[in-house]
């Protein structure tokens, strides 16, 4: 009898802990969403209203009265372009790291890893000067190149760990038939790592979508603002009501959250493999 009640107590404790942990994880997101669904008077009610009525007018205001659509469009252009570039350049490199044997392989993977330890600011100061010299400082092109480079090492690393998980027997058979490594990568291994490729694509996209420091330092013209800069400009500005600000951040967070939940399984597998095994 006592062992049954003890098991029951443990179960209750487990669910309680899980509930607390989930609340901590979810509450800020919940608060963002419900703030975005209230009128200005309700938002500034004190004590705050935890289960308010839902009104979607704020979303119409944010789309018509702020420049969010323009910022989101710029973010989309930058993120898509830099992701495409990073995949184009990173996938062959990952293939070489995973499959081929050659001199300098260990040094190359060491360099790839080291890039992830380098403080971003060390790169931003000279990149700013280089962008000025090239005349691309206040342009989306600069952001595309910067984000391409920032995500490239992660793309290489994730693709390498995905490729490591694909069996090599078919490739060897193709080698016997005289296929070149390039053909093998394109027609044999490529289709097998498509889920991994999707996860890597989304990771690179999200990384660029979320980039702040480079955009903040290089972009000055409001028409070139990306969403991360536009939205952060609301902080401490007190002109845009908070429900509108939160509606904007919901719209900004929605693509990452949806994409992330879609590829969560592969993403976590790839990342933890990369982080654990190196």
């Amino acid at each position: 009898m006592s062992s049954i009640s003890k098991a029951r107590f443990n179960r209750a404790l487990f669910w309680l802990s899980l509930l607390i942990a989930s609340t901590i994880a979810v509450f800020p997101v919940y608060w963002m969403v419900i703030t975005s669904l209230q009128t200005t008077e309700e938002v500034f009610a004190f004590p705050p209203n935890f289960l308010p009525d839902i009104k979607i007018e704020n979303y119409l205001s944010v789309l018509t009265e702020t420049d969010l659509p323009l910022w989101m469009r710029n973010s989309l252009v930058v993120s898509l372009s830099s992701t495409a570039l990073a995949l184009l350049v990173g996938t062959p490199a990952a293939f070489a790291l995973s499959r081929l044997r050659y001199r300098g392989r260990a040094v190359f993977s060491l360099l790839i890893l080291t890039t992830q330890m380098i403080p971003t600011l060390v790169l931003i100061i000279p990149l700013f000067q280089i962008f000025v010299q090239l005349g691309i400082r206040d342009s989306l092109l600069g952001l595309v190149l910067g984000n391409f480079a920032f995500t490239l090492p992660v793309v290489v690393w994730m693709m390498k760990s995905m490729l490591d998980g694909v069996p090599q027997e078919i490739e060897q058979a193709a080698r016997v038939d005289g296929a070149s490594w390039f053909q093998i990568m394109l027609y044999i291994t490529g289709p097998l790592v498509l889920p991994g490729l999707a996860a890597t694509t989304i990771y690179a996209f999200l990384d660029a979508w979320d980039e702040y420091m480079l955009a903040r330092t290089t972009i000055t013209s409001p028409e070139n603002w990306v969403a991360s800069i536009g939205i952060s400009s609301f902080v401490g500005q007190y002109l845009t009501p908070l429900n509108i600000v939160m509606a904007a951040s919901v719209l900004f967070s929605l693509p990452p959250i949806i994409l992330f939940l879609l590829i969560q399984r592969q993403f976590v597998a790839g990342l933890s493999a990369g982080a654990v095994k190196g």
Binding site: W31, L206, A227, S228, S253, L261
Partner: peptide, 10 residues
């Protein structure tokens, strides 16, 4: 999954 800037704003 929540972007850094949105995290800061919330």
């Amino acid at each position: 999954a929540v972007p850094y800037v949105a995290t800061a704003l919330i």
